[in-house]
Simulated assay, not measured.
Amino acid sequence: MTRNGVDVEAVNALTKEMRKDAMARQKTLSGLLSWNGGAHSTTIVRNFVIPADEPAVLGGTDRGASPMELVLTGLAACVAISIAYSAVEDGIEVHAIEIDVEGDLDLGGLFEIAGSGRPGFEEVRLIVRVDADAPREKIEELVNHGYRRSPVVDSLTGRVPVRVCIGREDAGAG
């Protein structure tokens, strides 16, 4: 059975398994990035190839969304998914979810220009529109619940440690 495009049986089976076995809750996500020169790179995640680049004005070749645009994309997509899943749990039929997402950043931080702010987003804004078979108060509740349960929101607003390890390929091995 599906509701709102969500395979409810698969989600329920996973949820049941995670309640029984704490190890079933743990997941490591990964990808492999290859730099293509300049600001252009390609990342492989599962079976998906995701290009990233900067616009020409920032020295890129505009062959993909910028890394910061990809962050905004991930945020909006995760909030939408969380809203849809919350609606499934509440038995609400959703017809559409649209999210306008934008973020402000000081590009001077990237280029280490004196007096600039930090290189990350200063503020991110989401405007969420949900068309569902529910009164406005319930839709507001769904949006707030979706926001609170979003792993991307938590990762951006929490203090997630980032560890960088330096590896190298041995040249001329053999």
Rank of each mutant, 00 (worst) to 15 (best):
L58P: 06
G64M: 12
G64Y: 13
P51Q: 05
N47C: 06
L105A: 09
L29C: 07
L14E: 01
Q26P: 00
C78E: 05
H40G: 04
V101T: 11
T15G: 10
A56H: 13
S86V: 02
D90Q: 15
G91R: 04
L107M: 10
Y85G: 13
V130W: 00
F48P: 01
R118P: 01
M68P: 15
P67M: 11
V130L: 07
A114V: 03
E122P: 11
T42G: 02
E137C: 08
G64L: 10
G120V: 09
R148V: 04
I99Q: 00
R148P: 01
I83M: 09
R149I: 14
E69T: 04
R118S: 07
R19L: 06
P67H: 10
V79L: 06
R125K: 14
G38I: 15
D21M: 08
P67D: 11
I83K: 09
V71S: 01
G37F: 11
M23G: 15
P55A: 10
A56K: 15
A22N: 09
I99K: 00
F48G: 02
E98K: 03
E122N: 14
L33A: 13
V49E: 15
V130G: 14
L58D: 09
V79F: 07
G108T: 10
W35P: 00
M18F: 04
I83D: 09
T28N: 06
L126P: 13
P151C: 12
I81S: 04
D62T: 13
L126K: 01
D21A: 05
G37C: 08
A24K: 14
D104C: 02
F121V: 07
I127S: 13
T28Y: 09
A22C: 03
I99E: 02
V8T: 15
D131V: 14
R46H: 10
S150I: 05
E93S: 13
V11S: 02
A56R: 15
E9S: 12
R25P: 10
M18D: 03
L107Q: 03
S66C: 08
